[in-house]
Design a protein around this nucleic acid. Structure first.
Lengths: 191, 191
DNA sequence: AGTGTAATTTGATATAAATCTAATTAGATA
DNA sequence: TATCTAATTAGATTTATATCAAATTACACT
């Protein structure tokens, strides 16, 4: 699993001694005793840390007579940095999904813009709700009656849909007054 | 210290449960029990992990009635990814140093290209040795006699300089045959 | 005030990990 | 083969941490 590799990497880097070693090696290869000297630690301790760093391929070594030089494997670090930076981006996915969302909306809405029926499949349902909710005004407070009327434009079962708006966090209710939640709180269909 | 912050970040991310939480939150905010449910853990365990993630500012929270939604703080993650990616680059430093290196060489070499004297200051000494060694051929084996003659072009004390080549890992000796080391093994002047 | 829900704190347990000293191994050199 | 140097392994100690059950707190709603 990709996750295991990530965990191992960060766990290994989450130690002050090992991070210092990485910084040292970033300036050029060093042998064990030199590292131990610079850090004020004993050689066995360095061996211990090097073993862990070798496990995640962040260092490699070359023997030169009796002394072993440790080198930093920069590509692994850069790769993990990239993974970290990209784990956030749900944005590129949106591009792919746009077409599929359009198709779902075409299937479930009439040409007049009314909802034919509520999809059973969760991800399709969410696409539909998201579409409905786009017609509401951010920051505006909707009395229940007004919200019902809005939903009725699209479908007769306003009670179900209104409830689903809350369940899926599209909206928030306070004293029977409804209001749109911030968009980042909405449930997203998982493709 | 910057290092402490890095250690804290990676230590916190070096745990499978917390990484899974990050992945969950990357898809949108969630409340504690939802996270506990999805991961098959108890609420106290989630509280424990959230506290650690809050300490490094990788999450923040907003209360919605009784339930607290946790949000991912993407900027912190992106920032740490950037730090990780940039920790390698000694390259930008080289640019700055070029001018200073030139100046050192001008000070210690005659216009005829001979070394006036060996600098006492370590970093200047290394700049000088690096310059000398650039005249040698990578991969070529130099008998001691030949190396001495090469050094004599620049300075009379070939023995000292030859020894320094070894000490600082510019060269490698085997049975009185000398050979250039790979460049990434050389001692670098620390600016 | 009283009730319900979600989160947190407390205390216990079990596991992992960083570091050291002492002993051992691996390679190079004479 | 004997010896030197550098690295590693083994074993012990100390500290940190992930998890849970049980008790408690914090809000919201009636």
């Amino acid at each position: 699993m990709q996750l295991d590799r990530m965990v191992a990497f960060h766990k290994t880097m989450g130690d002050a001694t090992r991070l210092r070693i990485v910084f040292l090696l970033a300036a050029g290869p060093l042998h064990g005793q030199a590292i131990a000297g610079k850090l004020g630690l004993t050689p066995p301790t360095i061996t211990h840390h090097m073993k862990k760093m070798r496990d995640i391929n962040v260092i490699y070594e070359r023997r030169e007579k009796n002394t072993i030089y440790f080198y930093l494997n920069e590509s692994v670090i850069k790769q993990q940095a990239a993974v970290l930076g990209s784990m956030i981006s749900k944005d590129e996915k949106r591009g792919e999904n746009l077409a599929e969302k359009q198709k779902i909306l075409q299937n479930f809405f009439t040409t007049e813009g009314r909802l034919k029926n509520i999809p059973a499949q969760r991800k399709k349902k969410l696409v539909v709700y998201e579409h409905l909710v786009r017609g509401l005004q951010a920051g505006k407070k909707y009395p229940e009656k007004e919200l019902n009327e809005y939903i009725l434009q699209f479908h007769e079962d306003y009670a179900t849909i209104r409830r689903e708006f809350i369940i899926n966090h599209y909206m928030y209710r306070e004293n029977s007054i409804y209001e749109l939640n911030p968009e980042e709180m909405w449930a997203k269909a998982e493709y």
